[in-house]
Amino acid sequence: MQISPLSERFGVAIDGIDLGSALDPEAFDRLHRLFVDHKLVCFKNQSLSAEAQIAFSRRFGPLEVHILSQYNHPEHPEIFRLSNRVVDGKPMGISDGGSYWHSDLAFQEQPAKATILNALEIPPEGGDTLFVNMEAAYEALSDEWKQRLQGLQAVHRYRRKQTTDGQSTQVELNDAQKNQTPDVVHPLIRTNPDTGRQSIFAHKGMTAEIVGLPREESDRILDFLFEHTVQPQFRYDFRWSPGDVVMWDNRSTMHSATTRDLPPGQYRSLYRTTVRGERPI
């Protein structure tokens, strides 16, 4: 494996490995450590089938099946399709999925540990995925803010209604899907069980309110966190290339897609698998 940094902030690119082949335990352990330590990993020059992507993803834990079942792969429901293509009058996938700041499945009791995206089709420009290092954002807080936030819990809501700046998507949930997404409560500061490091767990697209605080105070704290976390020193904008397979640690990062900003005639299609995580502590 050849390993190089993606940015000065966080993330690594790995070349010289075939994710479609069987990885021995030593090689997998090394990959897992790179994932945990660097939070964002891009495997270059891959050609993963749906079956191979599922097999690789399952090495990290059990896989989720997304509630928006209309966009799941018809033969492999563990794969969620992200695409702005329309084939025979039907969307190939969700066209603007994740086009807001979030951590995957933060609206569930057990949010995602890892997300793995397999690039099938990449436009010549645009369609970047934006990432934030939430550990670095936490470490940059003043001691007063760290003390203020410890012990606070917040409500996380799928398709948060109090959104601004386009922090939502166009897809509507049916009644059955809405019933699968009740509000959940998670700590504002969470600890990654693989590292013991703390990070901010608040995302403009999903975190709705702080439990037990008056609305005005809750909004003031959340607005501060939303603005603080997306500062340039914590952020890395990933530019996709054909053959990329990208995975990230949802416990210590947040991200936003930009697919909805693609000009007409530019297409981006990816297969997503999502590894179930632990209940945040």
Rank of each mutant, 00 (worst) to 15 (best):
M1K: 11
M1E: 12
V12C: 05
D15T: 13
G16Q: 07
I17Q: 03
G20K: 03
S21A: 15
S21D: 13
A22T: 12
D24G: 06
P25H: 02
P25Q: 06
P25Y: 05
E26H: 11
V36A: 12
D37L: 06
K39Q: 12
K39V: 11
K39P: 02
L40Q: 00
L40W: 05
F43P: 05
F43Y: 11
F56C: 01
F56M: 05
V65W: 06
I67H: 14
N72Y: 10
P74M: 05
F80G: 01
F80C: 07
R81W: 02
S83N: 04
S83V: 09
N84T: 10
K90T: 13
M92R: 14
M92Q: 15
S95T: 11
G98N: 02
W101I: 08
Q108P: 04
A114I: 13
A114C: 10
T115I: 12
A119N: 05
L120H: 13
G127E: 01
T129G: 04
N133L: 08
E135M: 05
Y138F: 13
E139Y: 10
L141S: 06
W145L: 13
W145G: 10
W145H: 10
R148N: 01
Q150A: 14
L152C: 01
R157L: 08
R159L: 15
R160C: 08
K161F: 12
K161L: 14
Q162P: 00
T163A: 15
T164Y: 08
G166Q: 09
Q170D: 14
V171S: 08
L173D: 06
D175S: 13
A176M: 07
K178V: 08
K178Y: 12
N179Q: 15
Q180A: 13
D183H: 11
V184G: 01
P187K: 00
I189Q: 04
R197C: 07
I200F: 08
G205S: 02
M206R: 06
A208K: 13
A208C: 02
E209P: 07
I210N: 10
I210V: 05
V211M: 02
L213D: 11
E217R: 06
S218C: 11
L225C: 10
T229R: 08
Q233D: 04
R235T: 12
F238Y: 15
F238V: 04
W240E: 03
V245Y: 03
V246G: 03
D249I: 05
M254N: 09
T273I: 09
T273E: 12
E278A: 09
